[in-house]
């Protein structure tokens, strides 16, 4: 136990937390925006997966990681556009639409992977480009902090910026006010001339963009190639983090980091002589426990409120 604590107190552990939190936090932000607009976007997982695939393959063909990133973003937003067409125009249940997109992504990516590489498992044979790592000049020389915060993939820094941008958008702009209005009471928003479908579509597209950034990170940062179902539930972990953040962007971020910490822990524990099957379940168990704790808390709160 003490050994575990020792590991957790090293700068390397902090570095790993940030490394693993990137896709989770992007997913959580994606869920946050969609949820604020009143849409439970469970297709985030599928959006990430699609973006991960499109990103790395495009970068392999163009030999340019940035073009790959842009392609990944477009793929995520295309998925979001499809979802909004289903749910906002055709009025499908958004959970069903989400399930359809998730199933579609997980099989369609494998299908394309097989056509392009002849393998159903990974795209490692393609010589894809990854996004650059960034060493921050002054920060890198500060003891401890430098080793935690410097040298990450560029998307990790975009993630920190995204948290702040999402906050500014939701709390300081007319668009944010309208997104919240549409999520809380679409009829009321409509009565003052807010175009509900347009605002929800914008929110979903932004959600798709953020999910795509998380997905692109998986195949162009965390790893440098695509593997079958490589997001491994991170989109759903993001959804869980969002739910526990109770509509507050800082709490959402904090919860995402908490889950990221357990993810990092499971990486670190692989040094110990424990069965790896158990260790790999740690992040998921953490989410489960977290959601149970949150549900109990919510239930008690509701009971006091009497709703």
């Amino acid at each position: 136990m003490l050994d575990v604590l020792k590991i957790m107190l090293t700068p390397e552990f902090g570095f790993t937390v940030i490394r693993v939190v990137v896709p989770i936090l992007f997913a959580a932000l994606a869920a946050y925006i969609a949820n604020s607009a009143g849409i439970a976007n469970i297709a985030i997982e599928g959006m990430m997966l699609m973006a991960a695939f499109v990103g790395t393959v495009t970068s392999a063909f163009t030999q340019n990681a940035w073009i790959g990133l842009i392609a990944a973003c477009l793929a995520g937003m295309l998925m979001a556009a499809i979802l909004s067409y289903f749910t906002l125009i055709l009025k499908t249940n958004n959970i069903l639409g989400g399930i359809a997109l998730n199933l579609f992504s997980s099989s369609f990516t494998v299908f394309l992977l097989f056509i392009i590489t002849g393998s159903k498992g990974t795209s490692a044979t393609l010589s894809a480009r990854s996004l650059p790592k960034i060493v921050i000049p002054i920060l890198k020389d500060i003891p401890i902090l430098g080793r935690i915060f410097s040298g990450h993939n560029v998307l990790a820094y975009i993630m920190f910026a995204a948290v702040i941008l999402v906050y500014l958008m939701m709390y300081q702009t007319p668009l944010g006010l309208r997104i919240k209005a549409v999520g809380k009471d679409p009829h009321a928003a409509e009565s003052v001339g807010v175009d509900v479908i347009r605002i929800k579509t914008i929110a979903l597209l932004l959600s798709g963009l953020l999910a795509a950034l998380g997905g692109a990170y998986m195949s162009m940062g965390y790893l440098s190639f695509f593997t079958q179902n490589m997001t491994a539930g991170r989109g759903f972990i993001g959804l869980a983090a969002e739910a526990m953040g109770m509509g507050n962007v800082w709490l959402v971020t904090l919860t995402a980091f908490l889950f990221g910490m357990f993810d990092a822990l499971s990486n670190a524990l692989q040094l110990f002589a424990l069965p790896s099957e158990i260790i790999q379940t740690i992040p998921y168990v953490a989410v489960f426990v977290g959601i149970v704790a949150y549900s109990i808390y919510e239930y008690r709160r509701m009971k006091i409120k009497g709703d």
Binding site: Q172, T173, L177, A181, K184, A188, E190
Partner: peptide
């Protein structure tokens, strides 16, 4: 309307300006 079209979690001012919000620096509320 007979059934109020108000967003309960918003302030009075926010409810009133929603849809025609005063802006500053072009993008901000």
């Amino acid at each position: 309307h007979q059934h109020f079209m108000l967003i309960d979690d918003f302030s009075v001012a926010e409810n009133i300006v929603l849809g025609m919000e005063p802006k500053q620096k072009r993008f901000f509320l």
